[in-house]
Write a protein that binds this DNA or RNA. Structure first.
Length: 514
RNA sequence: GGGCCCGUAGCUCAGCCAGGUAGAGCGGCGGGCUCUUAACCCGUAGACCAGCUAUGGGCGGAGGUCCCGGGUUCGAAUCCCGGCGGGCCCGCCA
């Protein structure tokens, strides 16, 4: 580094970015100021003074007047620094400021001649500086690797991602408020479980040293939420982290958030009604309308969440959307159909074949919120058999924007059948291993069966993937964009303390740390 | 597990196919400009190490260098092989 770091120039002006200021009294948010002073006419100034703080995200210097963009997390506003207003001492500091620095400002709302609502700065404090250069103003942070590795910059600068994060919080809050108004309570289920279950997926295995035993990270809260139903908590839910040790792609990530809801004395019809009511309520609360505009891959799409949503049985959906006849076909016939459709599937269950065919020919065509109903019983070990035909389960999945975002059913509350289905799952595992390799199955959970033996009322349940929902609503290409922080391998780099021994020396000496 | 693509300055990228002195824009630094908003205009350093003078920079020299390591070649950012990091698609899961 030949150039003296600008840090030293702050010090020369009597400003140490970590020692001079320890706090700043913020009296107003930029969002409020924008709202309150929207009425100002171009060229108009007020005598009101406001105290705000945030990060500088843009600088335009014009000699003795400088414009900056300040972002306080609620909104952005233009700051106007005028030499004749702040004087020479502060002006010298203005000249040192970079994009990324954090300042506290006292200023008067005004509108510039070009009509930009601004704060005319009367005083300001440097609260922290950035040691690293920020991305280019026009393209921003675009490189995928850097976006995920330096996610705080991505979250700070990329509007689409940032909006999705805020929306996710609001959607979760709307779900909670809705369920609360209906008398539901949230129960936190264990993330470390002796038997994994509630879904068909490979689990993470970890160890509890205190007990010297292996445990599984929860793949779903389901069996514990249903234990809660048995505990006479008849309306429960959880917004739960689930861990599934599967591969990562645009629609899957090993840890994800799901809301699971269980309501006693209801069946799948009641649950579908609750879901469409709750989701459409959240959409309207967060976006202001049941219909929302989504832009994905430069294509515009209007999603209409107005209840009721369409309900289409699985086999009908295959025939209607995919134009493939599957009703009444045998296992062998379905294998042939799958082959013709270029679907690689190795599974002894007829239901699995139907699911695969559905995913290939029908799913991409289902854009509007839709319940696909009547899933095969053999792929639904926790669901109650369909009352009119036990080959099917009273199970539905929720599809929006061509993606599966949820799954629900009339819960199997018969402990005798539940034991039988679990046993069948174990058999399936053993049989399939010889013939097809490892097949996803639900492990035997006798402890859960015993809970059912104490009596579970008729109950309906559902799980909705929050990241997937947000991904669709905001037209994000990858589920990773909807997840605040995803995993990346460690990289090598030097810290500022390593690059600038003089500055390290300054601080250790200044604070007497030697 | 299989396939495809990418990695060059702080950022966004060109150069690679057809091997021959490492580039642009933005950002930085210096100068000009009191209503701009991707501000503009002029200049300049910067891809790693490091010597001598001196703390503002200047002067001169040797090597290195395009994610890393090999190879081919008189010569590699460029071609080949292997690795690392990242993305996308297929298979399995939501």
């Amino acid at each position: 580094m030949l150039q003296k770091h600008r840090f030293w120039r702050f010090v020369e002006l009597g400003i140490d970015p970590y020692i001079t200021e320890y706090s700043f009294e913020v009296r107003e948010s930029l969002a409020k100021i924008r709202e309150k002073y929207a009425y100002l006419k171009s060229g108009e100034e007020t005598q009101d003074r406001h105290s705000v703080a945030g990060r500088i995200l843009g600088i335009r210097r014009h000699g003795k007047i400088t414009f900056m963009v300040l972002d306080d997390g609620t909104a952005q506003i233009q700051l106007v620094f005028r030499y004749d207003v702040i004087g020479e001492t502060l002006w010298n500091v203005v000249e040192l400021l970079n994009v990324g620095d954090i300042i506290g400002v006292i200023g008067r709302p005004m509108k510039t001649l070009r009509g930009e609502l601004s704060l005319l700065v009367e005083n300001f404090k440097v609260l922290a500086i950035t040691w690293r250069d920020y991305p280019e103003k026009w393209h921003g942070l675009a490189d995928a690797e850097k976006r995920y590795r330096l996610r705080y910059l991505d979250l700070m600068l990329n509007k689409k991602v940032r909006e999705a994060m805020v929306a996710m919080y609001r959607i979760e809050k709307a779900f909670r408020d809705f369920l609360d108004s209906k008398g539901f309570i949230e129960i936190h289920t264990p993330k470390l479980q002796p038997v994994y279950g509630g879904a068909l997926a490979r689990p993470f295995i970890t160890k509890i040293h205190a007990l010297n035993r292996d445990v599984y990270l929860s793949i779903a809260p389901e069996t514990y939420l249903k234990r809660s139903i048995i505990a006479n908590f008849f309306k429960v839910y959880e917004i739960a982290v689930c861990f599934r040790n599967e591969d990562i792609d645009a629609q899957h990530y090993p840890e994800f958030i799901q809301i699971e809801i269980y309501q006693a004395f209801a069946d799948w019809n009641g649950m579908m009604k609750l879901v469409e009511e709750m989701v459409s309520h959240a959409i309207k609360t967060v976006y202001g309308d049941y219909k929302i505009d989504v832009e994905r891959n430069n294509e515009k799409l209007v999603l209409d969440f107005t209840p009721p949503w369409k309900r289409v049985p699985l086999e009908e959906a295959i025939e209607f959307f995919g134009h493939v006849k599957v009703k009444g076909k045998s296992y062998e016939e379905l294998i042939d159909i799958a082959k013709e459709l270029d679907i690689k599937v190795q599974d002894p269950r007829k239901g699995k074949l139907l699911e695969k065919i559905f995913e290939k020919v029908a799913q991409p065509k289902i854009q509007q919120p839709t319940f696909i109903t009547l899933f095969p019983r053999d792929v639904s070990p926790l669901a109650r058999p369909f009352r009119e035909n036990p080959e099917y389960a009273e199970r539905f999945e929720i599809y929006i924007g061509g993606l599966e975002v949820g799954n629900g059913y009339s819960e199997l509350n018969n402990p005798i059948l539940q034991f039988y289905f679990f046993s069948k799952e174990e058999e399936l595992r053993v049989k399939s291993r010889e013939k097809f390799g490892e097949v996803e199955h639900h492990p035997m959970d006798k402890d859960y069966v015993r809970a059912l033996e104490y009596g579970m009322p008729p109950t309906a349940g559902v799980g909705i993937g929050i990241y997937r929902l947000v991904m669709i609503l905001h037209g994000l290409d990858s589920i990773k964009d909807a997840i605040p922080y995803t995993i990346v391998e460690q990289d090598e780099f030097e810290t500022v303390a390593e690059q600038h021994p003089d500055i390290l020396e300054y601080y250790t000496a200044r604070l007497g740390l030697k």
